[in-house]
Design a protein around this nucleic acid. Structure first.
Lengths: 347, 347
DNA sequence: TCTTAGCACTCGATGCGGTAGAGTGCTAAC
DNA sequence: GTTAGCACTCTACCGCATCGAGTGCTAAGA
């Protein structure tokens, strides 16, 4: 049985570095010349044969150089890689992006996605925050728009605002609506969405019998839980960055990947696949989804009060700049968590 | 000088039909066999030579068949094409999509984009409604979120709702906020955004001197005109449909096009380029933008009270199914206009 | 005068053999 | 254990011949 020794590690690291840069199979000669291990190509070749036996590298065909296997990348990430530091300008950019504090949580997440994509040059995927608890109603307001239309506005304590137009009878005035708003607020304000059960609703019905005609529509908005959740929403930024990866210059591969990215359900599975707190790197076949078998996903969770409420991630080819991407994702998750912590008070 | 006669028209139409279907240059033999004009390939060849002289068709190289030129498509669209009727299932689909009446105008536009893309299998571009007039304030509401944060909500008479979190002093209560809301509503309700000038603002400042601390932030939201406009926002649907077009199996072309589609400003120019009321077809070089010189755009405007407030359109290769696409875009614009007319009352 | 069969011609696509070059594995010497 | 040397393998590339689709032209026929 072959064992990894120090030189093998160096050779593997060299192969991976070179391949990440060039996307071309790496030969023994290249390594000997570019990476000064102080040994001849022949020695490198022996080491390479061992590394291949270990399953860490592969040959596309005889007389081609070697290419890292998924397992090789895995070994690299786990044992060899030295995380790259952020450049001052990168740090600066991140800092500036989070400066504006009076943000809605959703916007924060979107901005994170944009940053991830911009810094890594890959595609970023971020998942909107899942409520650690169910959102509670802060305020309800009805506004008359035209004689027959009114706007229902619901403010949640998470800082999100929802609105919908409803039809109302011709003779309803803004005064009526104010009256209804008042009652709704008295009854519902502070309650979380799950606790708005039929009992309370029928109570309201009773009290507002004369407005029955439009209460149905108004309450429908309240009941529509899904409408309040950004939980399932996944934001993609920089999808077209994959066009810069030579491995996707093949239209068929491109189609497969892009059609995957259109399906939010699958994205969701990919993003939370085997998710545990902190940073996760899933390389090639480690992904459960077939369509990204030659991609790597670097994801991290973000949380509030130790409860995971969402994920951010970067999707790229297995030939990914691991040292850079991992640092960035990790750092962004930390910054995001810190920012969320500061915003926590009003959630 | 060669003149178009009936048979030339038939030959041109045949070439275009065949090319739209196959994306391959069309030969004289194919036309004679498939399109039963009752003449031999040799005759067709003579006609083709004439059509080429007229600039309506081109030869990629000697010994290849003919391909329609932009001019050829133009002639086809102007003189030869018979608009294709919508199938019952298509009509049904469109009808169902617009059934839900109590819609916000923005959602209506997005839905239109989705339909366009789905029905045509090309990329759709729709532009959000430009206000015929400046939006007016319908209602302002301040809601206390935490001891130090409040939500400003502004409802416009166009049916859009805007909100933003602001910082407030620790000792401000919801009652205070209600008081401020009341005054703001009294002063500003019904005014359009342009008319909120310094005079009115300073009046408010005077009256609400004791809340001065946070009025700045609240009024900033009111002043931020751009925030209220969806005018410049362009929705793209079905971008990946272009992958199905053989003309874009070339990565470089694809990159050029996709990078164009990422630039909203350019999109805006493309969509309203030489825009006049009604349906417009811009074929290949007729587009002012270089990057879509081998694309065709079919656009239509939508209006309220004879004022153009936006555009919808489809982007595809010049080898486009004109008869189908033109019918669909035209029909969708009409349906959209009709729906907007019905919604008009509350705008 | 218009149509068409026939034919020579053009040019891209395809396939094949040969070559160059990159890279390997193995062996034998250091 | 390392390395120089060498035979071997396989891809990429080039040139060449061939095939076939499609043309333009010409001359005969309607």
């Amino acid at each position: 049985m072959v064992k990894m020794d120090d030189r093998k590690k160096k050779v593997l690291a060299a192969i991976i570095h070179d391949y990440i840069q060039t996307a071309e199979p790496v030969g023994s000669r290249t390594i000997s010349r570019k990476y000064k291990l102080g040994v001849s190509p022949a020695t490198i070749r022996n080491e390479m044969a061992d590394l291949e036996e270990l399953g860490l590298i592969e040959q596309p065909h005889t007389s081609a150089g070697r290419v890292p296997s998924d397992l090789g990348y895995r070994y690299y990430v786990d044992h060899l890689m030295e995380p790259e530091k952020l450049t001052p300008s990168e740090e600066e950019l991140i800092k500036r992006s989070y400066e504006d504090k009076s943000q809605e949580i959703g916007k924060l997440i979107v901005r994170t996605g944009q940053l991830l994509s911009r810094l890594t040059n890959y595609t970023s995927m971020v998942m909107g925050p899942k409520r650690g608890r169910v959102a509670a109603i802060k305020h309800i307001q009805l506004v008359s728009m035209t004689p027959t239309k009114a706007m229902v506005i619901v403010v949640l304590d998470t800082g999100s605002v929802h609105h919908q137009l409803i039809d109302v009878a011709e003779n309803i005035t803004q005064a009526d609506l104010d009256q209804v708003s008042k009652i709704l607020n008295a009854k519902l304000s502070g309650l979380n969405m799950k606790r708005i059960k039929m009992t309370i609703l029928s109570e309201i019905y009773l009290e507002l019998a004369k407005y029955k005609s439009f209460m149905d529509a108004a309450l429908e908005l309240l009941q529509d839980h899904r409408g309040y959740d950004t939980e399932d929403k996944i934001y993609l930024v920089g999808v077209y960055n994959i066009l810069n990866q030579p491995e996707f210059h093949n239209i068929e591969k491109l189609k497969t990947l892009l059609s995957l990215l259109e399906q939010e359900k699958l994205l969701h599975e990919i993003l939370v696949d085997k998710q545990s707190e902190g940073l996760t790197v899933r390389i090639g076949v480690e992904n459960s989804c077939d369509q990204i078998k030659d991609c790597t996903m670097v994801t991290a969770t973000y949380q509030i009060d130790d409860q995971i409420i969402g994920s951010i991630g970067v999707l790229g080819p297995t030939r990914m700049e691991y040292a850079k991407v991992i640092t960035i994702v990790d750092h962004m998750a930390k910054v995001l968590n810190k920012t969320l912590e500061e915003m926590k008070r009003w959630r």
